[in-house]
Design a binder for these strands. Structure first.
Length: 423
RNA sequence: GGAGAGGUGGCUGAGUGGUCGAAAGCAACGCUUUGCUAAAGCGUCAUACGGGAAACUGUAUCGAGGGUUCAAAUCCCUCCCUCUCCGCCA
C-alpha cells in the first residue's frame, strides 16, 4: 500500500501519478485524507485522556503506599471510562477504515513507466530470434498433443472440470523435464535459492502480495480452514519474510520456486477453448527477490534477463514489452512481459511477467531491513515468472514440429526428457 | 482428535496488580585503556502511531482479541501457535 505520510505531504503528486491508471483514484486519495484527519484527531484526544489517566493512576499508587485516602481521586478517574471507551472504538474504526481505503489504492507507476491507455500502447523493449519458417501449415499444440497422446482435456474435465488438463506418458515427462530444467538453470547459473512452499496460504499472505482484499474472486478458497490455493508462488515465497527485519547483509534475497498455480479465471473469456493457454491449474517456476530500494531497478533488469535466458536456451523467438500505466498490475510500479512466439496460434503468448513492486508489498507485510545507519527501512520486492510452463509447452510443441508430425526436443532439454524427439 | 506444559526485547531469561517498556546475562554497536587477533572499563542498543522546526515528548505493544480494575506482563474469558505424551496417518 501507499505511505499515508506521503499522501498527506504531497497529495497532488500522488494523484497525478495515479491518474495514469484506470479508475477514479484521486477521489480515493481525498477519501483517505479525510479519514486520516479524523483518525488523528480522535487518536490525539484518546491519547491525552490516557496520559491523564496514567498520571493519576500513578498518583493513586503513591498515595496508597503512603497510607493516604484515595477514594475521591479514584472516583474522579472512574468517570474517564466511558469517554475512553468511546474514543477507543472510534479510533479503532477509523484506523480500520483508513487501512481498507489504503489497501484498495494501487501502487504508483514508476516515474519512467510509459504512459498509455491500454495494451496497444505497451512499447516493445527488445526482440530475440525470429519466427521459424515452415514449409507446411504449422499445427496447433492441441492437435499435436492429441496425435501423440501427450495430454487429455477430456480426462482433465472428467476428474475435475472444464479448463483442467491431464498430462500423460511422454507429455507428463516433458512437463517434468521443463520443471527440472527451469529449476536447475535458475538455481545454478541464476543464483536463486530453491524453495518448495506450501500450496495453501492464509489471508495475511494474500493481503501482503495484493491478491486480497480486491481480487478474492480469482482464488480457490477452502472455507472450512479459511485457506486459499496459491494463484502463484509469489504469494508464499514473498511472504516468507513478512513482518521481519532483515539484516542488510542478507540482501538481496533471491528465491526460485516451482509450484502449480490455481486460478478461478472468473469472468475470463474463451476459458479452455484454446488448449493449454488459459487453465485453472498450471505449473510455473517463479522468481522472487527482496532487496534494498536502491537496488530494485537493476534487480528488475537482471530478473527479466534470467527469465529471457530460458527462452534463449530453448531457442524460442520472443519479444519483451513494457506495460504502460493503463495496463500495469495493481501492485506493480514497473512491469516487463515476455511473449514467446507460437506458430500454431499465429501470435505471441505471455510466458513471463516481471515486476518491481517497490515498497508497496513490503509496507503491506511490514517487511524491513536494518540499514547501516541502524534505521529500519522497507525492502523492495520483485517477482517474475521464470517461466510459466503451460505456454512454454505450447511454444515448444508448435515451434519444433516437423513436417512428418514429429516434435524435436531442443538439445538442452534432452537429458531431462530422455529422448531427442517425440514421434 | 485427547492429555499436559508453555508463549516476555536479536537470543537466554527474571518478573504474579501500582514509579515495569520491563532485572540480569549473552550478542551487537560506539568510546577509552592495555596491546595484539584477545581482555577490561564506560556508554548505546525494540517497534508502531501521534505532537514538535528541533531538542524533545505523548500513547500503544510482554502470542492475538475481549473483560475486571483508578491501575494489567501480572487476574478472568476466547482464540492462535510451540513443545511432550497418546491416537490417527502419507
Amino acid at each position: 500500500m501507499l505511505d499515508i505520510a506521503l499522501i498527506r505531504k504531497n497529495p497532488d503528486a500522488v494523484k497525478t501519478r495515479l491518474a495514469a491508471r484506470h479508475g477514479d483514484w484521486p477521489a480515493q486519495i481525498d477519501a483517505v485524507l479525510r479519514c486520516d484527519v479524523q483518525r488523528r484527531q480522535a487518536e490525539t484526544q484518546l491519547q491525552t485522556l490516557q496520559a491523564d489517566r496514567n498520571r493519576i493512576s500513578k498518583e493513586i499508587g503513591a498515595k496508597k503506599k503512603a497510607g493516604e485516602d484515595t477514594s475521591a481521586i479514584e472516583a474522579q478517574v472512574r468517570g474517564f471510562g466511558d469517554e475512553m471507551k468511546r474514543l477507543n472504538e472510534q479510533t479503532a474504526a477509523l484506523d480500520a477504515e483508513q487501512r481498507d481505503l489504503l489497501l484498495g489504492i494501487p501502487n504508483l507507476p514508476h516515474e519512467n513507466c510509459p504512459v498509455g491507455e491500454s495494451a496497444e500502447q505497451n512499447p516493445e523493449v527488445r526482440v530475440w530470434g525470429e519466427k521459424p519458417a515452415f514449409a507446411f501449415t504449422p499445427k496447433s499444440h492441441v492437435e499435436l498433443g492429441e496425435a501423440h497422446g501427450l495430454f487429455s482435456f477430456e480426462r482433465g474435465t472428467k476428474v475435475a472440470g472444464p479448463a483442467f488438463v491431464c498430462y500423460m506418458g511422454k507429455g507428463a515427462r516433458l512437463e517434468r523435464a521443463l520443471v527440472n530444467f527451469l529449476l536447475d538453470r535458475q538455481t545454478g547459473e541464476g543464483g536463486y535459492t530453491e524453495v518448495a512452499p506450501p500450496l495453501l496460504v492464509n489471508r495475511d499472505a494474500l493481503i501482503g502480495t495484493t491478491q486480497l482484499p480486491k481480487f478474492g474472486d480469482q482464488l480457490y478458497h477452502c472455507a472450512d480452514d479459511d485457506l486459499f490455493l496459491v494463484p502463484t508462488a509469489e504469494v508464499p515465497v514473498t511472504n516468507l519474510h513478512r513482518e521481519e527485519i532483515l539484516r542488510a547483509d542478507q540482501l538481496p534475497i533471491k528465491y526460485a520456486a516451482y509450484t502449480p498455480c490455481f486460478r478461478r479465471e472468473a469472468g475470463a473469456a474463451g476459458l479452455g477453448t484454446r488448449g493449454l493457454i488459459r487453465m485453472h491449474q498450471f505449473d510455473k517456476v517463479e522468481l522472487v527477490k527482496i532487496c534494498r530500494p536502491e537496488e530494485s531497478a537493476a534487480e528488475l533488469e537482471s530478473l527479466t534477463a534470467d527469465a529471457e535466458r530460458i527462452l534463449q536456451l530453448l531457442g524460442l523467438h520472443y519479444r519483451t514489452i513494457e506495460l504502460c500505466t493503463g495496463d500495469i498490475g495493481f501492485g506493480s510500479a514497473k512491469t516487463y512481459d515476455i511473449e514467446v512466439w507460437a506458430p500454431g496460434q499465429g501470435g505471441y503468448l505471455e510466458v513471463s511477467s516481471c515486476s518491481n513492486f517497490g515498497d508497496y508489498q513490503a509496507r503491506r507485510m511490514a517487511l524491513r531491513y536494518k540499514g547501516e545507519d541502524g534505521k529500519n527501512q522497507l525492502c523492495h520486492t520483485l517477482n517474475g515468472s521464470g517461466t510459466a510452463l503451460a505456454r512454454l509447452y505450447v511454444a515448444l510443441l508448435e515451434n519444433y514440429q516437423q513436417a512428418d508430425g514429429s516434435i524435436v526436443i531442443p538439445e538442452i532439454l534432452r537429458p531431462y526428457f530422455g529422448a531427442d524427439q517425440i514421434g
